[in-house]
């Protein structure tokens, strides 16, 4: 024990000083990759997307034989980071991890520096994080059906929290209102943390959020859960019905993540990245870590450029309509 920990400590300090020197190294076999690969995460460090990225970065790096650096380029709902990668050198050394926001950006933002379908080479889907509909624990309705009836009857006083314009919770909330046929008073927050804090504190009535954030609160009984928004139940919350089971089949949404390379990246490089992604998603450690977040890697056939493109096309269609109907615009 002491030996490994000493080694680890040396490694930790070494990491700070030696990486630059190591960066030039990399594997010599067959061209790409010859240097560090950067995965740009367009959201803050420690957030769900960042977490997912860091989970897969290590096994991907092992497969590729190069170091992977995760870099957070935040701003404007992820569009700043996406913009940066769209305009980066198409050499496979700068790639992007983005989520559902890629399919909502064109509807939300004017003057984007990129076009989701045209500015990128898709590498593959990564995971689809389910969302849950949760309420403060003393909220009256007990089931999803009751919730719909209740909010229709009390539309003037029910409050629906979300984590800000364009956030997954906001999108899911819009879809809920469409599916239930009701217009509610939305209460936006700056991120999920504060929104969930006020939900647990009973200041707002209900919201929609990723299992990553809610599963701990649900199992502890701090919030009341109605349904999960994916076609199948979630392993970590086996008693929670799906929206279809609970009678609201129109409410289907998941925070799907995908990896992108800039347009023009050579096909063999994209192929290598896809292979590395598949290897990472089959890694037992990654599967275990994702299970703790209430999600799982996508099936192998979905971790491909084709499946990724199809998903993006489908999602762009759905969200441009929902967002236009709701009259939401970020700029």
């Amino acid at each position: 024990m002491p030996t490994t920990s000493t080694l680890r400590m040396i490694a930790a300090i070494g990491v700070l000083s030696l990486t630059a020197a190591c960066g030039a190294g990399g594997s010599a076999s067959g061209g790409y990759p010859e240097q560090n690969i950067t995965i740009v995460v367009p959201f803050s460090a420690g957030g769900p997307t960042d977490t997912v990225t860091r989970m897969i970065a290590e096994p991907m790096a092992a497969k590729l034989g190069a170091k992977i650096v995760v870099q957070n380029v935040e701003g404007a709902g992820g569009t700043v980071g996406a913009d940066e990668v769209a305009n980066a050198n198409p050499d496979g050394y700068t790639v992007l991890m983005h989520h559902i926001g890629m399919s909502t950006a064109p509807a939300l933002y004017a003057n984007l520096g990129f076009k989701p379908l045209e500015s990128f080479e898709m590498i593959g889907l990564v995971t689809e994080v389910p969302m849950t509909i949760v309420a403060r624990k003393d909220f009256e309705p007990k089931t999803l059906q009751e919730l719909v009836t209740y909010v229709k009857a009390n539309a003037a006083k029910v409050t629906l929290a979300n984590a800000g314009v364009g956030a997954a919770s906001h999108l899911c909330g819009l879809l809920f209102q469409t599916a239930a046929g009701v217009k509610l008073q939305e209460v936006p927050y700056k991120g999920t943390g504060p929104a969930l804090t006020d939900l647990v504190g009973g200041q707002v009535d209900f919201m929609c959020d990723q299992t990553t954030n809610t599963s701990g609160q649900i199992t502890a009984g701090e919030v009341k859960a109605y349904a999960v928004t994916t076609p199948e139940r979630v392993k970590s919350l086996p008693n929670l019905p799906t929206t279809a089971e609970a009678g609201l089949p129109g409410l289907k949404v998941s925070v799907w993540h995908g990896l992108y390379a800039p347009k023009g990246t050579p096909q063999d490089v994209v192929q290598k990245l896809t292979e590395a992604l598949k290897t990472a998603l089959a890694d037992q450690k990654v599967i275990d870590q994702m299970a703790k977040l209430g999600t799982e890697p996508v099936k192998a056939e979905d971790a491909t450029p084709q499946a990724h493109r199809a998903k993006l096309e489908e999602q762009l269609g759905i969200w441009s309509k929902v967002i236009a109907d709701a009259g939401v615009k970020a700029s």
Binding site: T51, G191, G193, A220, E222, K292
Partner: peptide, 18 residues
Amino acid sequence: MALMVGAFIVHGITPGPN
């Protein structure tokens, strides 16, 4: 603290009252 939450999750600990 939000960064700490991320660290919890990376290490497979579900942040919450439990």
